[in-house]
Amino acid sequence: MSNKYRPHLQVLLEDDANRQIANGFMLHFALDTRAIQVLPAAGGWEKVVERFKDTHIGALAKYPERRMLLVVDFDNRTEERINEIKQEIPSGLSERVFILGIRTEPEDLRNQIGKSFENIGQALAEDCADNKCTLWGHDLLRHNLAELNRLSSGVKPFLFN
């Protein structure tokens, strides 16, 4: 039985560190685990884009209740990378596609705050559930706030109970 005709979020991420952050995010008690699906890590931001173009654009068009989150490392090239990725998103789908990532890479965030990737994910989920920016406001993450607000307004009603 499939839930793909109900609102749901698919997450396409760059690497294993981001996967572990996503694991922690999904442990939040109020999160509907059936409304989110984390896909296997692509293995690089360019591969995220490649996989998005090859596989997911068609599926997004087919399933209007699907939202897609692309998680990449910005490697200190935030604006440039976001623009490069946005160029690949068809205009008709841009409202349902979101881009988030750490300004450098997840290992830097882990080293700076001394938490495991899973615990980082849990803290980010708590922020989202409580409408706070405690960790999202960190220097390595705060560039995401506008996109996070756009994502929250689109997915929070069905993602968090």
């Binding site: 996967r19 572990q20 694991n23 922690g24 999904m26 442990l27 939040h28 008690f29 999160l31 685990t33 984390v38 296997p40 495991s116 990737f117 899973e118």
Partner: peptide
């Protein structure tokens, strides 16, 4: 995993990639 938090505890074994990916290092 979500339900077995706090004082509860979950242990699983697996060979399945999708199950393995749901845990961390």
């Amino acid at each position: 995993r979500q339900a077995f938090s706090g004082s509860a505890q979950l242990m699983v074994t697996s060979h399945n990639p999708e199950a393995i990916r749901r845990f961390s290092n």
